[in-house]
Simulated scan of single mutants.
Amino acid sequence: MRAATTPRLGLIEGDGIGPEVVRATRLVVDEALSASGVMPVDWVPLPMGLTAIAECGAPLPESTLAALDGLDAWILGPHDNAAYPPETRIAPGGVIRKRFDLYANIRPARAFEGVRATASDIDLVLVRENSEGFYADRNMFAGSGEFQPTADVALAVGLVTRAATERIAREACLLAATRRGRVTIVHKANVLPMTMGLFRDVCYEVAREYPTVRVDDLHVDAAAAQMVRAAAEFDVLVTENMFGDILSDLAGELAGSLGLAASLNCSATRAMAQAVHGAAPALAGHNRANPAALQLSAAMLLHWLGIRDGNEALRQAGARVDRAVAATLAAGIATADLGGLASTSEFTEQVCARVHRR
């Protein structure tokens, strides 16, 4: 086991409410590490988004990517690429995921005490294959998987490979083994028998390596309907990129709000905490944004670092953040999106206070 050494983490504020929720998350992480006996983080601030365009002429400067090359993990704020000039309209998160092969996107959804949820018994994790599928920025060696041969015709290429499917299926099975022991493969093999059929079949092949894990499968439309009707029946769902993006947003709303939807993008060696929600530019600068999703994402990041490094103190710090956010919500303290009256800073102060409680 490694000693509780000083973590070195990137800090990327992004656009809109990004600076507010990222700073709020930094405060909570620092408190949790202190309470767990870990030295304060060596934070490495890095530009991204509209600020980076103004300073460097690009939303994701090479200097930022080069700095990330030297880090094991980082916290990424939301981006508002729709507001970027046309010549720079990239999605920075997608570029980072592709560059560092962050192939697993882990998105939990659970109901919190004190939060009105559509599905009050939801407690699932969606494991999304993050490196291929139908998203045009992740499915070609060079160029884009979306293109127009004429002004009136648009085409998209979906990519599914055995290698990528094997590794995401293993992530899902390993996770299920620590939870309730069930994996549901979500696909659309009835109309995409080659791509989605390959995904489904390879997931089943990998699952045979985990005899304690029960496995079934559903078409994506049936999975969405079942999630609305009986979300508690799901434990871990594994699916391709676009389906995972859509279903995780649905799960987040069923759990109460996208303001609580945490997310971790990771490989075996690197990880990025990134909330599911967007930049909400209309809320920027008003101290009204909900920081809980990014704080819960940071808890996942600390847990991931603790597992990777065999560092129990980092795992404890992650658990402290998770428990403190849950306890704050259970006490009826919430931001406006959840029907509460707390500001971003007030909610964060309450979370920080609860981080120190056993």
Rank of each mutant, 00 (worst) to 15 (best):
354 R>I: 07
124 L>H: 08
345 S>H: 05
252 G>L: 05
154 A>N: 15
20 E>S: 14
28 V>D: 14
234 F>T: 00
29 V>P: 01
126 L>W: 05
279 A>R: 07
83 A>S: 15
255 A>D: 02
145 G>D: 00
273 A>R: 04
63 S>K: 08
14 G>Q: 07
275 A>W: 03
29 V>Y: 05
271 A>T: 07
107 R>M: 10
318 G>C: 09
198 L>S: 10
37 G>M: 11
57 G>R: 07
297 S>Q: 06
189 A>W: 04
328 T>W: 03
159 L>D: 11
226 Q>R: 15
358 R>T: 13
138 R>V: 00
185 I>G: 00
59 P>V: 04
52 A>H: 00
333 I>H: 15
293 A>W: 04
88 T>S: 13
231 A>L: 06
110 R>Q: 11
192 L>C: 09
186 V>Y: 01
251 A>Q: 07
345 S>E: 08
203 C>I: 05
200 R>Q: 11
131 S>K: 02
299 A>W: 03
290 N>D: 12
112 F>S: 01
8 R>V: 07
101 D>M: 06
172 A>R: 00
4 A>D: 13
11 L>G: 06
110 R>F: 11
97 R>W: 03
144 S>W: 12
325 V>N: 00
73 A>G: 13
327 A>V: 03
138 R>H: 02
267 S>K: 06
354 R>E: 09
84 Y>S: 03
43 W>S: 01
239 T>P: 00
201 D>C: 09
205 E>I: 04
320 R>E: 02
284 A>I: 02
116 R>M: 05
149 P>G: 07
81 N>W: 11
337 D>H: 10
47 P>F: 01
231 A>E: 07
312 E>K: 09
128 R>F: 01
202 V>L: 08
251 A>G: 13
357 R>A: 15
226 Q>D: 14
54 A>T: 10
178 T>P: 14
288 R>V: 12
285 G>P: 08
134 F>T: 05
88 T>M: 12
316 Q>P: 11
229 R>D: 15
211 P>Q: 12
111 A>H: 08
228 V>K: 04
46 L>K: 01
346 E>P: 08
142 A>N: 04
108 P>K: 02
130 N>T: 05
183 V>R: 00
80 D>K: 02
32 A>L: 08
33 L>D: 08
1 M>F: 15
106 I>S: 01
100 F>Q: 04
327 A>M: 05
215 V>Y: 04
156 A>D: 08
234 F>A: 00
112 F>K: 00
152 D>A: 12
268 A>N: 12
202 V>W: 00
31 E>N: 09
237 L>W: 09
276 V>G: 01
352 C>A: 15
105 N>L: 03
337 D>A: 10
69 D>R: 14
176 A>Q: 07
251 A>H: 06
305 L>S: 10
137 D>G: 12
326 A>K: 03
187 H>D: 06
215 V>Q: 02
195 T>K: 07
28 V>Q: 14
20 E>N: 13
34 S>F: 15
127 V>Q: 04
240 E>Y: 03
219 H>N: 06
50 L>D: 01
75 I>Y: 01
115 V>A: 02
22 V>S: 02
152 D>K: 12
358 R>F: 12
101 D>L: 05
84 Y>A: 03
157 V>T: 14
155 L>R: 03
